[in-house]
């Protein structure tokens, strides 16, 4: 045993203490509150998505002729395929929900403020990646709804001034949805976006480690000395508990509400009701309210504002009296997002 340890130690010059040092960063006490564990949740779900996604890719064939059939094969014939697909589908939903919750927590606790502005922007990139990966993944099934969802999505992209048509062509691999489209979506979904997200995550986490987690003091605690605790095992266990809880929840969702097969995509017949996945309801409702370029541009503008918010917030705090403005703006924003989503969900058209 010691021989093996020595052999390994020579080749991997990493002592036990180095490992402890690397993993056991002390974390502030407030992380013992559950609300502060939301960052680990999307990371855990991301791992689940990678694992199930790789498995699904073993059988998936990204072509118009075979896509639907291969998804059907996974769902109906491959052993446990229905379960893995269910986990992947519900994992996506939960991951997007977790990302949004994490972002809201960071926002409302001011975690993006100096010196962490850059990490907020990295996080915004991760949000956009997550939404895009959700969109491309949904389109891969080649169901009637996902086909038309992708078609509508491409047309929205096309309505962006100047670069719109170019974006659409790039996205679809041609003037319209064709033989090139699915391979493109598949590459984005299974290779480009995950790789990009991993890079962004590394940066995201590295920045957290470099800055340390914001040490928050709640009312009444200000006078107490900081009581940091170890990442491992204490915080790790907390994250593990959340992860396991999520896994059980995923398994339950995948069995109780399994991923099903809608009708196969038919380019010749547009369905009565086209709806994207729930996380695009906001944008979809918005597009219906302000048709065309205006809506697209306004969504782009909102995204841009979110992206640079740390600097806007700093400016507000510096040059106005409204130090708490971000909270009220955040509440207004969250309420309008929820309102638009519920609105879209409640009506047929």
């Amino acid at each position: 045993m010691s021989t093996l340890a020595r052999w390994l130690g020579e080749r991997v010059p990493l002592g036990r203490f180095d490992i402890k040092e690397l993993t056991n960063e002390p974390v502030p006490e407030h992380l013992k509150r559950w609300w502060w564990c939301l960052g680990g949740t999307p990371a855990y779900l991301f791992i689940v998505q990678i694992a199930t996604g790789i498995l699904l890719a073993f059988y998936y064939e990204p072509s118009a002729a075979r896509a639907y059939e291969s998804v059907r094969f996974v769902t109906e014939e491959a052993a446990y395929g229905w379960f893995l697909r269910g986990i992947h589908k519900w994992g996506a939903t939960l991951m997007i929900a977790a990302v949004i919750l994490h972002q809201m927590r960071v926002y409302f606790t001011g975690g993006y403020r100096r010196p962490r502005e850059l990490n907020w922007m990295v996080g915004m990139c991760l949000l956009v990646c997550t939404l895009t990966i959700g969109f491309t993944g949904y389109s891969l099934v080649y169901e009637q709804l996902s086909y038309w969802g992708a078609t509508v999505g491409a047309n929205i992209a096309a309505s962006v001034p100047v670069v719109g048509p170019w974006m659409k062509t790039l996205l679809l691999g041609g003037e319209e949805y064709g033989a090139q489209t699915l391979p493109r979506f598949f590459m984005l979904h299974a290779a480009v976006l995950p790789a990009l997200m991993i890079c962004l995550l590394v940066v995201h986490i590295a920045l957290i480690r470099l800055h340390g987690v914001t040490d928050l003091r709640f009312r009444g605690d200000e006078s107490k000395p900081p009581k940091p605790f170890l990442f491992y095992p204490d915080h790790f266990y907390t994250e593990l508990m959340i992860g396991l809880g999520l896994t059980v929840l995923l398994a339950a969702l995948a069995t109780i509400l399994p991923a099903t097969m809608g009708p196969k995509a038919d380019p010749l017949s547009t369905p009565e009701v086209i709806k994207p996945e729930w996380f695009f309801y906001v944008a979809f409702r918005w597009l219906k309210l302000f048709s065309g370029t205006a809506a697209v541009l306004s969504i782009g503008f909102v995204l841009f504002v979110m992206f640079v918010w740390p600097f806007i917030d700093a400016a507000i705090r510096k040059y106005t009296r409204f130090a708490e403005a971000s909270v009220w703006i955040g509440i207004a924003g969250a309420l309008s997002i929820i309102g638009l989503t519920v609105w879209e969900a409640a009506v047929a058209h």
Binding site: A51, L55, F58, Y80, F83, L84
Partner: peptide, 11 residues
């Protein structure tokens, strides 16, 4: 194990 069984070719 579930993943392994899934990858094992179906009938």
């Amino acid at each position: 194990a579930v993943a392994g069984r899934y990858l094992f070719p179906a009938r």
